[in-house]
Amino acid sequence: MSSPAREPLLAVSDLSIDLTGETVQRGLIHDVTFAVAPGESVALIGESGCGKTMTAMAVLGLLPRGFAVTGGEILLAGRDLLRCSARELRAVRGRTIGAIFQEPMSSLDPTMRVGDQIAEARRLHLGESRRVARVRAKELLDRVGIADAARRLDSYPHELSGGMQQRVMIASAIACDPDLVLADEPTTALDVTIQAEILELLRELRSEQGIAVLLVTHDLGVVADFCDRVVAMYAGTVVERAGVDDLFADPAHPYTRALLDAVPQTGHPRTLLPVIRGRVPAAGHFPAGCRFEPRCAHGGDARCLAPQHETTLAERRTVRCARAADGDPVTRPVATV
């Protein structure tokens, strides 16, 4: 599933985000670097609290109040989004970048008919008339697999099932033919059958329209099935970047290894499920050295107590681990209950 190197559509370099205001916490997101090429799907993975969604929101220019980007750059087709005004970012969102959020009922306007919500993006960004935009909205509902689209144009979000709501979100995200779609846990609240349908729809959009996807997810099965490359994050930093096949076959960072081992396996009854001891450190309370060191099977190594830096292992593959950089093996965590 790996793809050849291409010029990136999205390039995030050395991104840092701090909590500002009355309470200051630095380095919540620290030195995050990754890229997404045209037509490529890249996954951000990691436990809750690792900074995946915060990183994605920085790309969209939608950080919560009190958080600020304090370093790095975010280039979209060579344009630095961090230097754009609020008005310029509004023009980018929906037109060049589409967004699919985890909870459609929290993102769709409950007071607007779904057809009007989809058409609104085309009217704002493309200047279409209400009539033309509505025709296009019906075509989009057809495209995302909603039956009887002409009637559903006049439905309110609460009148649709969860799977249909997510399809409406996708239709809205692709309404203006964006180059990049940012999908934050797009299948988490759906049953496995609807999950498969949504992923197949996104796969078709990538194939037919060349849309790139930045996928934020906990589901490693979805990553293996859908993505080209993986960016593993822990406690606000990128610990490993690799092609999906390379990462699943031979993870280089102990955290990535532990994540993969924690996935339940079929065909092995009465075996203990490996777990990662402890939890992600709270924001502002990160260890001075490797942020994963207190939970790592190799914790206590003097190399782990020093600040960690990204090391290039191969083309388009990096790891932030001094042990891995020295070629030391990554062992499996001990299963506990």
Rank of each mutant, 00 (worst) to 15 (best):
S3F: 01
P4F: 06
L9H: 12
A11M: 09
A11Y: 00
V12H: 01
V12A: 04
I17F: 02
L19H: 03
L19I: 12
R26D: 01
R26A: 15
H30A: 13
V42D: 05
G46N: 07
M54P: 10
M57S: 13
P64Q: 04
P64W: 12
G66S: 13
A68Y: 03
G72A: 06
G72K: 12
E73D: 11
R79K: 15
C84V: 10
A86E: 14
R87I: 11
A91S: 13
G98E: 12
A99F: 12
F101E: 07
Q102S: 01
S106L: 13
L108F: 08
T111V: 15
M112K: 12
R113H: 13
V114Y: 04
V114K: 08
D116K: 14
Q117M: 14
E120Y: 04
A121C: 12
L124G: 00
G127V: 10
G127N: 02
R131P: 00
V132E: 15
A137W: 05
K138A: 14
D148C: 05
A150S: 14
A150V: 09
R151A: 14
E159W: 06
L160I: 11
G163E: 10
G163C: 11
Q165R: 15
R167G: 05
A171T: 07
A171L: 05
S172Q: 12
P178L: 06
A183P: 03
A183D: 12
D184Q: 03
T187P: 07
T188K: 03
A189D: 14
D191V: 11
D191H: 00
I194P: 04
Q195G: 06
Q195N: 07
L199G: 03
L201K: 02
L202M: 08
L205R: 02
Q209R: 15
G210V: 08
A212I: 00
L215T: 00
V216C: 15
A224G: 07
A232Q: 02
A242S: 11
A242N: 08
V244H: 02
F248G: 11
A249D: 14
A249W: 02
H253I: 09
P254T: 05
Y255W: 05
A258V: 13
L259P: 04
L260F: 09
D261P: 03
Q265K: 15
Q265W: 02
Q265D: 00
Q265C: 08
P274E: 01
P274D: 04
V275M: 14
F292N: 04
F292M: 02
E293A: 15
R295V: 09
A297P: 00
G300F: 10
D301S: 08
A302R: 15
C304Q: 02
T312Q: 13
A314T: 04
T318G: 00
V319P: 07
A322Q: 12
A322R: 14
A324V: 09
A324R: 09
A325N: 12
A325R: 14
V334T: 15
